[in-house]
Design a protein around this nucleic acid. Sequence first.
RNA 1: GGAGAAGUGGCAGAGCGGUCGAAUGCGGCGGUCUUGAAAACCGUUGAAGGUAACACUUCCGGGGGUUCGAAUCCCUCCUUCUCCGCCA
Length: 425
Amino acid sequence: MLTIQYIRENTKEMIEALKVKNFDAQEISIKIIEADDKRRAVQKELDDISAAANNLAKEIGALIKSGKTEQANAAKQQTNEYKEKSKELSKLLDDVNNELHTLIVQIPNIPHASVPKGHSAADNLIVRKGNEGKFSKEGKVPHWEVTEKYDLIDFELGNKLTGAGFPVYKGKGAKLQRALISFFLDEAEAAGYLEVQPPIVVNEASGFGTGQLPDKEGQMYHVGIDNLYLIPTAEVPVTNIYRDVILKAEDFPIKNTAYTPCFRREAGSYGKDVRGLNRLHQFDKVEIVQIEHPEKSYETLEKMVAHVESLVQKLGLEYRIVKLCGGDMSFTSALTYDFEVYAAGQDKWLEVSSVSNFEAYQANRLKLRYKEKGEKKTVLAHTLNGSALALPRIVASILEGYQMPDGSIKIPDVLVPYTKFDSIS
RNA sequence: GGAGAAGUGGCAGAGCGGUCGAAUGCGGCGGUCUUGAAAACCGUUGAAGGUAACACUUCCGGGGGUUCGAAUCCCUCCUUCUCCGCCA
């Protein structure tokens, strides 16, 4: 969420900038400032009463000590008034704070100045293409035919065990998964990221910290008995490592990577786009997360994009990098690049990574701050993350693009040391 | 799962009804000294709201209660430790 200070001090600029995200902040910003004014007034009043009550309590203490019990008792009478008033004001303050909070969390992050206007994916900006035209769609079949033919992934079996969207990977299918995970983690480590293995269920506070809660509650699997959530991405536990943390400026950049399964209910998605590996309820992903100094975060975003690009490049996939338009960006992001790889068998582009700078938006929820050397004041840090990479669609793209004339599948060279086989036939 | 004990500042650790945002030590920062460093000595050192700056307010695991007054007493939840049981 944005800070109230920012909203107050940059109201006009904020309203203007949010138009890029097709968000009209005019009315809500007025309400917010009103609510904040009220909050300050009530807070002040409560503070004054508390101060008076504190003073009186001290006086009573002194009176009792010096044996003036009568005067002390008389003074006690007066405290009732304070008590009632402060109870009333505390309640009011809670209400005002809740109201203010409810309003503030409705405002999306401010898009970066370079974000194009637009309403849908059609308005996204293609910034770069790679391995263009490498894979012909001629003679290629969708990956779900390949996985069945070579018994790599069993979707039916997954239905039996769990339900749709929970496939079982078998034999070379399972090994390919494992190879990709190791490859991605090794690459991240080589790029300076510290590997972590976080829990894959998180509590409410973590869900709130990265913005999944309360709005996107329906997208997560919930373990009701313990009130825990299955993570939709490693971003949640990894970023929350730094919740309520005050860093030193010299700690930057903080670079973490994690492999985790991810769980998404994908409530409300149906139809042709969800076939095979295109959209699953459980999938594997290697995530990269950075905590960065505000002045460096955009430089860092570019580095993260370059890292992800090196992965698809090494895998030899045809890809394109798009800068999302305001309408297609997530609520919390200030700038997002998506990576799409070409799936020759479906003749479709599949999104395999999303790399974003959240600036201080998540950090404000997380209370993730830092201090400049010698400074007393804390400042919100910037958080960034990206998939590097999500597995299923990469697998789909490999299985479709690398189909050989004889119907076998060639394994990309960089993966062979991990898979220990160079083709599936 | 059963029985006990405990949760205080970056860490260690006092405080157990007022004078406590909290002794002391370590660590951090600044300084004196030194060619430099170490040692020693002096000072400083949590967060949030609020203010032009002060004042003021809140926070001693979370929530609630008792009291004129709570880090200190009570209830409850969470976490950690010890012992027993079970177990990958």
